[in-house]
Amino acid sequence: MFKRLMMVALLVIAPLSAATAADQTNPYKLMDEAAQKTFDRLKNEQPQIRANPDYLRTIVDQELLPYVQVKYAGALVLGQYYKSATPAQREAYFAAFREYLKQAYGQALAMYHGQTYQIAPEQPLGDKTIVPIRVTIIDPNGRPPVRLDFQWRKNSQTGNWQAYDMIAEGVSMITTKQNEWGTLLRTKGIDGLTAQLKSISQQKITLEEKK
């Protein structure tokens, strides 16, 4: 169930391209415009997507990853294993993690069937560096609404905000991946996880038929 919630949630996290980005210092504006741009692209490019579902990787690479804190999220997933990894191991892992996100997020976007969304009203940021933004996803086919909290983090150097995690039903996506990959990290280390991520990233994206 959580895996499905995570995939549905990713439908609204794909941010804007650099040329049309919203105010990078306001995570609420980023979330709002990102959702609108993403849904528009999914709707307008269905012919290309249906002809070649792996085209979704391109959308992810162009529109999402430049505005997601990939390395920060990847380091959180590694936890204690990050500090013990060599620079070469980290570089290989982050490259594999990025390719994994292209496949995983692309597969999530393949679930698009006309969903709509509501974003919580903007709250004062103050001096906060981590801000959760509640998004409610509404399914046109009558499924119950899904309420999610996207975690946005302020870059201490640039002042810009980027998304790095999502919490559904009190469970963090980062925590879920830590639990899912924990045994592999304990037995085969970061190299074993890197190899698995490379394998997963090679899987073809498949479209979910409308139910």
Rank of each mutant, 00 (worst) to 15 (best):
V8W: 00
S17D: 09
K198I: 14
E63P: 07
A92S: 01
A19L: 13
Y100G: 05
D165G: 13
T206D: 04
V171P: 12
T136L: 08
Q196P: 10
Q24A: 10
E209N: 08
V171H: 07
G159I: 00
A88T: 14
Q62G: 06
D165S: 14
T187F: 13
L193G: 07
Q162E: 14
A108Y: 08
M7V: 08
E122D: 14
Y72D: 03
N155Q: 11
E180A: 10
Q69C: 03
A9I: 04
T176I: 06
I49A: 05
L16C: 12
I174H: 02
K3S: 03
P132T: 12
Q107A: 03
Y117G: 03
F94D: 00
D23Y: 09
Q48D: 03
Y164D: 13
Q178M: 00
Y72W: 06
L148Q: 02
Q36K: 15
A18V: 02
R147V: 03
N179K: 14
D23H: 06
K204P: 09
V70P: 04
I167V: 11
T25K: 10
Y81M: 01
G189L: 06
V60A: 07
A163D: 14
Y28I: 12
K188D: 01
R50M: 02
I167D: 10
G182H: 15
A96R: 03
G126K: 13
A96Y: 00
A75H: 05
L56I: 14
L125F: 05
D149C: 13
P132A: 13
I59K: 14
Q107M: 08
A85C: 00
Y81W: 10
G74D: 09
Y55T: 11
Q46I: 03
Q69I: 14
G192I: 05
T183N: 01
N179S: 06
D54P: 04
I49M: 04
L125I: 08
L125R: 09
E63R: 01
A85N: 15
T58H: 15
L11I: 05
V60S: 08
I119A: 05
K177V: 04
I13W: 03
Y105I: 05
P121Q: 13
L109A: 09
I133S: 03
Q62E: 02
P27G: 04
D139T: 06
Q203W: 05
E169K: 14
W181E: 15
Q89T: 10
L109H: 04
I130D: 07
I133A: 06
P53M: 14
Y105V: 07
D127Y: 12
N179H: 15
A108K: 15
A195D: 07
L101V: 08
D139S: 09
L109E: 05
Y55G: 08
Y82H: 11
Y82V: 12
L101T: 12
Q24G: 09
F2Y: 00
E122S: 12
I130C: 13
P145Q: 09
A168C: 12
Y117C: 07
Y81Q: 00
S84Y: 00
D23I: 15
D54C: 09
W152P: 12
R186D: 06
A19S: 10
R50L: 10
L42C: 15
A95M: 04
Q118W: 04
K211E: 04
L65K: 15
T183R: 09
V70C: 13
W161M: 07
A168H: 14
D32M: 01
F150E: 14
K188R: 11
I13Q: 14
A104K: 06
R57D: 00
A195G: 09
E169W: 08
T183Q: 15
N52F: 01
S17K: 02
R41E: 08
A73K: 05
Q178H: 06
K211W: 11
A21V: 08
A195C: 10
L16N: 02
A195Y: 06
I49K: 12
P27K: 11
Q151P: 04
L197N: 07
D191G: 09
R41L: 14
F97V: 02
R143W: 06
A104S: 02
L42K: 01
Q123P: 04
L76Y: 13
R98F: 02
N155F: 15
L185Q: 10
T206F: 07
K3R: 10
A92L: 08
T116I: 07
R153H: 13
K188Q: 14
E63V: 03
Q48M: 07
Q62T: 14
G79P: 07
V70G: 10
Y93C: 11
A195Q: 13
R153Q: 08
K37H: 15
Y105M: 00
L197W: 12
D191T: 04
P53Y: 01
A14W: 04
T20H: 15
